[in-house]
Design a protein around this nucleic acid. Structure first.
Length: 613
RNA sequence: GCACCCGUAGCUCAGUGGAUAGAGCGUUCGCCUCCGGAGCGAAAGGCCACAGGUUCGAGUCCUGUCGGGUGCGCCA
């Protein structure tokens, strides 16, 4: 037998390709192999004969029949059928089921490094559910890419010289709020002050004073004088990110990018380009502008200001400098150790007194950013074209996610119309504890399980929908533990574990499997297990974590159906522990494979797999 | 005005050009003498927004129309 779970579809494709060559086809079409729909003959099938009908000037069933004559099928294909235009294969059930119980083959490492930026929350208030989608998507994608063999560096950008940070820090001084009362998380304390300041701004008499104070704070931030204040907020925010399960390799502070001269270097490089100019008259007189028309067609005004006529740089200019650094066009930022993350991994941060470290210089970048920033990211990409680096521009990917509404309404950080991530996780965990108290009052460790399940429910709710779809955050939906949810998958895992524990108690855990006894029930479960590597691969290729989420729902559902299956007279059709000896071994092996696959899949989404729920 | 994204069951969503369009929630009806009911089975519910086109084959690709969202500042 094989050492790893085989990729049955790929092997069938390979076999078909050889048969097509035997038929004398010079050009091979794309070969598709898929599972047959329920009720059709065979396990896997291909529509290849239909796509060849025109080129070969023959009817599809005839082509399929010719293929069967010329094909060297693997020994595990038991029969072939020509159904309509399809060519279907029926597999040896013993092979199919045993194949599903084998360990998953690791993906081979691939060349190059991916720099994935996510989170990048302004360090001025607590995280809200809009940020939640960003973190869950980014963190899950990083896990999926690593699993698929990519080398991934996760970066979190700290905009410490922005207006938001200045407003928050000034608000603390303005209201005289130095230290939060015990029990108040610092980022919430600062966020409340920020919202209050915006209320105060409604008052015309106070506006001028506040504006002056904010400007002054902004200058001090740019000079790096308030770094400890920003740091205090950031560390408070990091606690939320860690609780969600997100970790990073490096924090990159905007002030460090500027101070180390990267912004200046980037602008200097761009100034040499024919697309960059400094008009002496007209709308942009005195500013440094970039013409993007050659790379972003259809714009009314393709000019983009990099340096204003007053000498200050725009946001986009800083983003361009950062992107240049990410892709190795600029070097020289220093890093220092910043924190030890919950997993034990070190977190590094840019730092004035740090040392040079091998961060940046990636061959591919992924920016997890709100879809509303699409234009800005297009411009950053265009700046690489302006530099003559079409090759690098092609390797920039914007993972754009749509807005998160709150109970059907737009959120507003300034007005305080938000739900914080801390609040959502607390509420989720509280609700799970109530469920555990009701369903499993003797739970050995309810607090730990509630944390894993509650946070898992939140993460899963953020990941299960495609990123480009707008989602509406509703408490009752996001914190539901029934149906298409994280807890549903975790429950399937816990149930499987329960069976294995009992098997161990009864001393049958290592019983030998007789795969010849496998039935249709085992085959369905096995086919679902065999799909895992493909789902992971698809998710990595399309940079779409929801593919893994959807797959896990299907796998958990297949398993739930399996262990609930009943014979017509109402008895269990698929008992594991009380099955006849050889069949019991088969089922136990399947349950082990299921546990391993669910655990791996949950890990790709950053969800824990609790042993008991 | 121009550009990007979305439109699939009452609601929320899956569905790499292939077979009879699938889940969850909600509704109705069943299932705990049986490995954990956060579960399972069944029923009802669809001109896949609309109109053309490409294709052996379109929910999927192209064009247009209509709805919904978003973006297009020397703001940050």
């Amino acid at each position: 037998m094989l050492a790893h779970r085989p990729d049955i579809k790929s092997e069938l494709k390979e076999t078909l390709a050889q048969a097509l060559q035997a038929l004398g086809l010079s050009e091979l079409p794309e070969i598709i192999v898929q599972e047959t729909p329920a009720g059709k003959e065979g396990d896997y099938g291909t529509p290849i004969a239909m796509s060849l009908a025109r080129a070969l000037r023959k009817a599809p069933p005839q082509i399929a029949a010719d293929l069967v004559q010329n094909i060297q099928l693997p020994p595990w294909v038991r029969r072939t059928f020509v159904v309509g235009g399809y060519l279907n294969f029926e597999l040896d059930p013993a092979f199919l089921v045993q194949a599903a119980t084998l360990p998953i083959k690791p993906f081979p490492p691939t060349e190059g490094k991916v720099l994935l930026e996510h989170t990048s929350v302004n360090p001025n208030k607590e995280l809200h559910v809009g940020h939640l989608r960003n973190i869950c998507l980014g963190d899950s994608l990083a896990r999926i890419l690593r699993y698929a063999g990519r080398r991934v560096e996760v970066m979190n950008y700290i905009d410490d010289t922005g207006r938001q940070a200045a407003e928050s820090l000034y608000a603390l001084r303005y209201f005289g709020l130095e230290n939060p009362p015990a029990g108040t998380k610092y980022d919430h304390w600062v966020g409340d002050a920020y919202v209050r300041l915006h209320q105060e701004l409604e008052n015309p008499e106070k506006k001028a004073t506040i504006e002056q104070g904010v400007q002054e704070t902004l200058h001090r931030l740019e000079a790096g004088e308030l770094r400890p204040e920003v740091d205090k907020i950031l560390r408070s925010q990091l606690q939320t990110m860690y609780r969600l399960g997100a970790e990073y390799e490096a924090l990159v502070w905007e002030s460090d990018i500027v101070r180390e001269g990267l912004l200046g270097q980037a602008m200097k490089a761009l100034e040499g380009s024919p697309y960059v100019s400094r008009p002496t008259e007209g709308k942009y007189a005195g500013a440094l502008v970039m013409d993007t028309s050659a790379f972003i067609p259809g714009l009314e005004d393709p000019y983009l200001v990099l340096i204003r006529s007053n000498g200050t740089s725009t946001y986009t200019a800083k983003d361009i400098a950062l992107q240049f650094w990410k892709m190795g066009l600029l070097q020289g930022i220093k890093f220092a150790e910043y924190d030890t993350q919950p997993s034990g991994a070190r977190l590094y941060s840019t730092h004035p007194q740090g040392t040079l470290m091998p961060f940046g210089g990636a061959s591919e970048t992924i920016n997890v950013v709100d879809a509303r920033q699409s234009h800005a990211l297009r411009v950053v990409q265009a700046s690489l074209e302006v530099e003559g680096r079409h090759d690098l521009a092609e390797q920039c990917f914007h993972l754009a996610y749509e807005t998160v509404l709150l109970e059907g309404r737009q959120m507003s950080g300034r007005k305080g119309i938000v739900v914080s991530v801390d609040e959502v996780m607390d509420e989720a965990v509280r609700r799970v504890r109530a469920v555990i108290a009701e369903k499993n009052p003797d739970h050995p460790n309810p607090q730990e399980a509630a944390e894993q399940i509650g946070v898992g429910a939140v993460r899963f709710a953020m990941i299960k929908t495609e990123a480009k779809k707008q989602i509406d955050f509703r408490y009752d939906q996001a914190l539901s533990f029934e149906g298409d949810t994280g807890p549903y998958i975790q429950y399937a895992y816990a149930r499987a574990g329960s069976i294995l524990r009992k098997a161990e108690e009864q001393g049958v855990l290592q019983e030998e499997a007789d795969y010849a006894q496998a039935t249709a029930y085992e085959i369905i479960l096995a086919k679902n297990l065999l799909r895992f590597p493909e789902a992971a691969q698809d998710a990595a290729r399309n940079k779409a974590p929801h593919i893994v989420a959807q797959y896990l729902l299907e796998l958990a559902a297949a398993w739930s159906s399996f262990y609930n299956a009943k014979t017509p007279d109402g008895k269990s059709a698929t008992p594991v522990l009380t099955a006849p000896p050889g069949l019991r071994g088969v089922r136990l092996e399947l349950v082990k494979a299921l546990r391993q696959t669910l655990q791996q899949g949950l890990a790709l989404l950053g969800l824990q797999a609790p042993e008991v729920m």
